[in-house]
Design a protein around this nucleic acid. Structure first.
Length: 564
RNA sequence: UGGGGCGUGGCCAAGCGGCAAGGCGCGGGACUUUGGAUCCCGUAUUCGGAGGUUCGAAUCCUCCCGCCCCAACCA
């Protein structure tokens, strides 16, 4: 896919300004700082593309991958592994610049000591509950902790002993001494360190006090020489604090810039809700193909190129936005259309018998692999007297605009022959059509009529004797409505779950060449959509395919319009 | 309610004092051995609202309205 021209956005503009003013020595060093406490989702993809993309626009610049691992109670190496896999799969490379906030625990500790010595931090003995009560409210200022006036020496001693493990969890914290009356709650003596006697996935039991995000993040940026620290809007209120620590410490000062996080229609993108979907069994796991996680999208058959293009096209701004999932699907189809080889597959088979075609005969038809790309060549598809066609491609009582098979009508079997419907065979009891009878015109091999007669409909088929049987999973949006739970956060979002987001079809018939399709490989099943071999559940004898996305369905619109 | 941020077509989003880009969606047409793809054409006399400044305002000023975020020893 040819990537779009970088669109102007306020961050690119800010960086361009810094580049001309020489503010950061003409460098652009960004970072993607995930907390390893969950799987990455498409909202993270936006941030990844932004951070790595911005750095890549300037030769010699770079983007770091830094794990914000300051809370050992929630973080695991399993999550960290999945995050690295996902970033790599998206197509980005942090080179040697893999870091962890925990790499800086020593330095952070020393800096904390320096702040205590400068009278800018103190050990507080208040409980979490008491601290909350002292914080005040949105409209009322807080009140100072009685321990705020404690001597530097005492705080120093206590902080050292906190580190040595002398005090139980929750008994004391280290706080910055800023302003309990600040209208910005983040500035009301924020907590810098808390006691957590738990092992950390990287530092083991070396520490029993851990820094808070606000105390660790800016300094980590500073240590790494980050120039532009890009984060989401909810951190805007934290920027004064980010700045305060760096200034109080007198160290290199990056610029924090905030942008609006991505919201996608018909799904949820909060770690909490995604976790709930996984743990509640509403999906099969983090990589369920219906999940908006990178792992889920990947298993579903999305391409990294489509995801990157999507992130570029939706733009970057500060406005709360709900992007229509149709936009994502558009980017996917655009990419897959160009690269996916075509194949014929019948999802809901209906027997079709060509009465005047010799029994036991088979011939080989040549089919184009991708009409968008001649270099992808052609393939050979076996044809015979008994075929399967899509149930939907036959109608006993067709509407005026229906131009597929119906009693007496003629259609083209793609890459094969023109056939005319001569009759049907019905189930005696149910009256259901179980077989369609047709006669073919031997002069139309390949699909062209020598007499120039026009045939409106072309349908796909698979030779019954040669077909490969497979399970195909059709996915639809996970939620029925654009905004699950409605406008307010308190809404019952799970009530909007789509009960038919997964439909499993068995006994689907694929053209024989698909038997060899490798796990993860993507094809367009003509007239149906894009499909890929499931990487987890598919096996050589028992193929399982996922529908990545359907083709645009103009016919569905026509029918819907006719009914309305 | 105190603070912060944001309001441009159905959904995103440029524009930042000179007279509304682009994409998605939608509608129409052309073409077509995928009712796919592709290609055309249409889709905001108006920028949350009201005043004001100016020859001229989405862009500047004032007031109002609406939406989002913040009171974890989470990030």
């Amino acid at each position: 896919m040819s990537p779009s021209e970088p669109a102007p956005n306020f961050i690119r503009k800010l960086i361009a300004d810094d580049l001309v003013s020489g503010r950061f020595g003409g460098r652009v060093i960004t970072r993607f700082p995930p907390e390893p406490n969950g799987y990455l989702h498409i909202g993270h993809a936006k941030s990844i593309c932004l951070n790595f993309g911005l750095a890549a626009e300037h030769p010699g610049d770079r983007c770091h991958l830094r794990f914000d691992d300051t809370n050992p109670t929630k973080e695991t190496t399993e999550y960290a592994e999945s995050i690295m896999d996902d970033v790599r799969w998206l197509g980005f490379d942090w080179g040697p610049h893999l870091y962890h906030a925990s790499d800086y625990f020593d330095r952070l500790y020393e800096w904390a000591v320096a702040l205590i010595k400068a009278g800018k931090a103190y050990v507080d003995d208040l409980s979490a509950d008491e601290i909350r009560q002292h914080r005040g409210t949105l409209t009322q200022p807080g009140t100072e902790s009685p321990y705020r006036a404690r001597s530097v020496e005492e705080s120093l001693d206590l902080f050292e002993r906190m580190r040595a493990g002398e005090f139980p969890d929750g008994s004391r914290v280290l706080r910055a001494k800023i302003d309990m009356a600040s209208p910005n709650l983040n500035m009301r003596d924020p907590t810098m360190y808390r006691i957590r006697k738990v092992a950390h996935q990287r530092t083991g039991d070396r520490w029993c006090i851990y820094p808070m995000y606000d105390y660790a993040h800016g300094q980590s940026d500073s240590i790494e020489g980050i120039t532009h620290s890009i984060c989401t809007m909810e951190y805007e209120d934290h920027r004064p604090l980010y700045d305060w620590f760096l200034d109080a410490l007198g160290i290199y000062h990056p610029q924090q810039i905030e942008f609006a996080r991505l919201n996608l229609s018909h799904t949820v993108l909060s770690k909490r809700k995604l976790l709930e979907l996984v743990e509640g069994g509403h999906v099969s796991g983090w990589d369920d193909p219906r999940m908006p996680t990178i792992a889920g999208l990947r298993r579903r058959g999305y391409t990294a190129e489509a995801l990157r293009e999507f992130c570029e096209r939706i733009g970057v701004a500060k406005k709360d936005a709900l992007v229509d999932v149709a936009h994502l699907e558009h980017c996917l189809r655009e990419d897959l259309n160009r690269r996916a080889p075509r194949a014929m597959a019948v999802l809901r088979p209906l027997r079709l018998v060509i009465e005047n075609y010799p029994e036991g005969q088979a011939e080989i038809m040549e089919a184009v692999n991708n009409p968008e790309d001649a270099s992808m060549g052609t393939r050979q598809v076996p044809f015979s007297r008994v075929l399967y066609i899509e149930q939907d491609d036959f109608r006993e009582e067709p509407s005026r605009k229906y131009y597929r098979l119906a009693p007496g009508t003629e259609v083209r079997l793609r890459y094969a022959y023109l056939v005319r419907c001569t009759g049907v065979v019905k189930d005696e009891r149910t009256g259901e059509v179980v077989e369609v009878r047709v006669s073919y015109d031997p002069a139309t091999r390949g699909g062209d009529a020598p007499d120039g007669r026009k045939v409106r409909g072309t349908i796909h088929w698979v030779s019954a004797a040669h077909a490969v049987e497979a399970e195909v999973r059709l996915y639809d949006h996970l939620f029925l409505v654009p905004r699950p739970g409605g406008e307010d956060e308190a809404g019952d979002w799970k009530a909007d779950l789509n009960p038919r987001s997964l439909e499993r079809l068995t006994g689907c018939r694929l053209e024989p060449g698909l038997e060899a399709a490798a796990p993860g490989s993507r094809y367009q099943f003509e007239r149906n959509g894009y499909f890929c071999v499931d990487v987890k559940d598919s096996s050589p004898g028992r193929p399982v395919w996922n529908r990545t996305v359907s083709l645009r369905d103009t016919w569905a619109k026509i029918e819907k319009g006719a009914k309305a």
